[in-house]
Structures are given as C-alpha cells and as structure tokens.
Amino acid sequence: MTETPQQYPTSLGTSNASTITLLGHDLSTELLGQVGFGELALWLIRQQRPEPADVRVFEAVLVALADHGFTPTAISARLTYLSAPESLQSAIAAGLLGGGSRFLGVTEDTARFLTATLAELDAPPPEAEGAPDHWDALAHTAIRNRRAEGALVPGLGHPVHRQQDPRTPALIRLAREHDRYGPHLALFEAIGRVAPEALGKPLPLNGAGVCGAALADLGLPAELLRGVALLARTAGLLGHIAEERRRPIANQIYRAVDGHAYYVAPDAPATHDYGSG
C-alpha cells in the first residue's frame, strides 16, 4: 500500500524549484520593490493585507520602540559582542532576551491589561472619541482593581521621562489623524488622566504602553505584541553593534564595573533602586 505523504498547510511562504510564494503572492514579481517591510510584517501577523493607515500607525510604533539609548538590552548586546565578536546573532539575541516587564515587555503587558478591562464590560464601550466621563470612571475602576491585586498599572511611569514621554502624544495624535484611535487608546488616555488622583502621584503614560494600546486598536492580539516590540528593537540592537564596531565602548563599560566592584557581606542591605521602563 502506498502511503500518502503528510501535508503541512501554511498561509505564509512556500517555494519550489522556480518560484517563491509569500502570502499567496509571487515574491519576485508582486512583492519585491512594491511592499515595504513594515507593511509586510503587519500582513504576516494579521494574514490580510493592511490598509495604508494601519501601516502608518504600525510603522510609527516600530520607530518608537527601535531604540532608547543605553538601555540594559543595548548594553547586553554590546557586552556580548565584546565577549564573542564572532557571533553577531548571540549579541542580538542577548539584547532581545532582556525584553521583559521593565523594558519592551510593557507593550504587551499594557495591551493585556487594557484588553482584559474592556472585556469585562457588560456592554460595548462607548465611542473612543466620546464620553470622557465614562472612560474616566472605567479607568478609575481598572486602577482600583489592579491595586487590589497588588500589581502595578502597566504603561504608567518612566525612569527617564518623569513628566511626559515625548512618544505618547505623538503616537496618539498619529492614531487620530489616521482614524485608528480606538477603545484601547481611549482607555489608556483616561488612565493617564485619573492616575494622579487614583494613585496619589503623577505618573506619565510611557511610550511602550501607548504602543501596546495602538497595536491593540489595530486588532493585533496582546499575546503577539512583545514580538512586535522585539522586531523593532532588533533594528536598534543591530545599530548598537554597528556603532560598537566603529566606536567601541563595551570594554569601557566592563572595565568601569569591574574596577568599581567591592566585597560586601551577603547579609548587607541592598543600596540600589531599580526603576521600570
């Protein structure tokens, strides 16, 4: 009896001896030179070709998350490249592995928080551009519930931009201009409005959080958003490694830390305050 070969269906890419097909289109004749990388990435994620307004907001998010200076992810990449210059992929991977609850992971965490809050509503949320009192009341409830759980509100506060993250108003304005301002951004803005009263201190909406809200309003599932943040940061890490080759500083960082290391007893009190971002 002849066995039927197993088949593995995919809506992404396939190839044979003469052609490459991606998303149902001929890569060479229909996509190369006609589709930008941001559009392609969003198309791959959503499995349908995005509209130009979707691409504009998505690419703005990628730009907003690409680099933020000498963050732990960038330093990790540079130090790994110093240690293993023959392994570029290890340096980039080292930086990406640092995407978590304090850096980069905030994009996903904020989207999860906003999505869960909206899912608990008994009725559909009001129009994003209307009913500010409703959104503020919902934001108060969301913050109260989050505090009752003993958890921080994701997307609030930044270790550098303590008054306002400059990315936040720019991304919100862009979403509005392209008619992509939806309930996640409306709720996130309301959280920013009520947070000083609800928490007793002013905390700005950070850029990673607004990116999560904007991506959620584009219909992307929260579970994939850390991947989008890492996609953006990959470009930034590659830039850091390229700069490390031209103007190396990783060895200085290593020498500075090593030269200032000193022994303390294991039970000595900690003296560092680690911020979040």
Rank of each mutant, 00 (worst) to 15 (best):
D122Q: 02
A116P: 00
R102D: 14
T141D: 05
G157K: 14
E108T: 14
T141L: 10
R112N: 07
P169V: 14
H140F: 01
N145C: 14
D136S: 06
H134R: 04
L104C: 05
L171T: 10
V106T: 05
L156Q: 06
A142D: 00
L171I: 03
P132T: 09
L114P: 03
H140Q: 05
G155Y: 06
G130C: 01
P166A: 15
F113C: 04
T117N: 00
L114D: 00
Q163N: 10
N145V: 05
G157S: 11
A123C: 05
A137P: 04
A119L: 06
E127W: 02
G100F: 15
E129F: 00
T110L: 08
G155W: 06
I172P: 08
I172W: 09
A148L: 12
D165V: 14
S101F: 08
R144W: 06
L156N: 08
A142K: 03
D165W: 06
R147P: 06
A128F: 01
T117C: 00
V106C: 01
G155D: 04
V106L: 13
A148S: 13
L171V: 08
L104Q: 07
D165F: 12
A119N: 07
S101Y: 13
A170F: 08
T168R: 12
R173C: 12
A123Y: 07
L138R: 02
H161N: 11
V153R: 03
V106H: 09
P126L: 10
P124E: 08
L152V: 12
E108R: 15
L121N: 03
L171G: 10
T141C: 00
P126W: 11
P124M: 05
P132C: 05
T110I: 04
I172Y: 11
D122S: 06
P125C: 02
T115P: 00
P166T: 13
